[in-house]
């Protein structure tokens, strides 16, 4: 009976309906009136555009060694004395256009932030579901590991992992996943425990639905909102963590600089007065993370007041 009802419900809700429902929701009502959340969304969209179609618009592919010439090294921004219009934000040590590098770097930063988040989210959610649903030894093992890990700051764990595994995008993703899964596991476990006690789960259990189906079809959708809030904010924090690691020299490889590595590259000449090479990439990190946090903050307040 219950199974049937749920099935019918989910089938009947088509996309259009959902959208109009969304537009009438309280969430959307509050969203429209929250300037920070809107600004955050705009920033995120701009950055996503930059990472996807940006490379088609910028004057240079900074990874293509044929295109860059060292003779153009350290050109100041266009408005400064000696600046050139084709290098709007100036160039770096190899004659790479800073604006183009930022566009390509945003791509790397966002890729790492989002992929790292996805891995953490999937692994953490699965472990949290398993721990919460089955309880017992599995639960205490997973939660004990989570406890131990939470007593150490994530940046420090990631720094340690990177310093022994060496720089590289794969290593970074591994490090970020290893520090990122815990928060999902904890939240999802809590939500699962709460959900498990509810009547409808008891009901589907009675009708003999296999465990995995209960987990993924019935419990997972209910822990989805808290997960999505965490995920949004985590992308921002991963972008920052990656930038910090790259700055310390244990992040992405030099041939594919992220925004953080661009800052580090420019750092070497910042105090010599060549300020543009590090100032602009840093500003872009700040804007990106700020945008994510503005939206994430709003979402947390709206969707999950418990997490405040």
């Amino acid at each position: 009976m219950t199974k049937l009802k749920i099935g019918v419900l989910s089938a009947s809700v088509n996309a259009e309906n959902k959208w109009s429902q969304f537009l009438q929701s309280e969430f959307y009502f509050n969203y429209k009136r929250n300037i920070a959340a809107i600004a955050g969304t705009i920033l995120i969209i701009l950055f996503l555009l930059m990472a996807t179609v940006g490379p088609l618009l910028v004057p240079q592919n900074p990874y293509n060694l044929q295109e860059i010439s060292i003779l153009d090294a350290y050109k100041p921004p266009a408005w400064a004395e000696d600046g050139e219009l084709r290098y709007l934000l100036g160039t770096d040590s190899q004659g790479r256009d800073i604006l183009s590098s930022i566009v390509y770097g945003t791509r790397v930063s966002l890729f790492i932030g989002i992929t790292g988040m996805l891995f953490s989210c999937i692994i953490g959610t699965v472990l949290g579901l398993v721990a919460g649903f089955f309880g017992g030894k599995i639960d205490s093992l997973i939660m004990r590991i989570a406890d131990i890990q939470l007593s150490f700051p994530a940046t420090l764990i990631a720094l340690f992992i990177m310093s022994i595994s060496g720089r590289g995008i794969v290593n970074l993703l591994i490090a970020l996943t290893l520090v990122g899964w815990v928060i999902y596991a904890r939240t999802v476990r809590g939500a699962t425990l709460a959900e498990k006690k509810k009547e409808y789960i008891e009901a589907v259990k009675v009708i003999g639905l296999p465990n995995y189906k209960i987990l993924f079809k019935h419990i997972l959708p209910n822990v989805f909102t808290s997960t999505i809030v965490i995920a949004t904010i985590q992308v921002g924090s991963f972008v920052l963590t990656e930038a910090t690691l790259s700055f310390l020299g244990v992040g992405v490889p030099v041939t594919r600089p992220s925004l953080g590595l661009l800052v580090k590259n420019g750092y070497d000449v910042l105090f010599s007065g060549l300020w543009w090479a590090s100032t602009f990439p840093g500003l872009f990190i700040m804007l990106l993370v700020f945008g994510i946090n503005m939206l994430g903050d709003f979402m947390r307040d709206e969707l999950n007041p418990r997490l405040k």
Binding site: L65, Q66, I68, I70, S93, V254, T255
Partner: peptide
């Protein structure tokens, strides 16, 4: 920086350099 510059110069004669810094 020198290694990167060399890589970029050699790319122009057709030798593609992978940098291992």
């Amino acid at each position: 920086l020198v290694a990167q510059a060399i890589a970029s110069q050699l790319a122009k004669i057709g030798i593609k350099i992978e940098l291992n810094l």
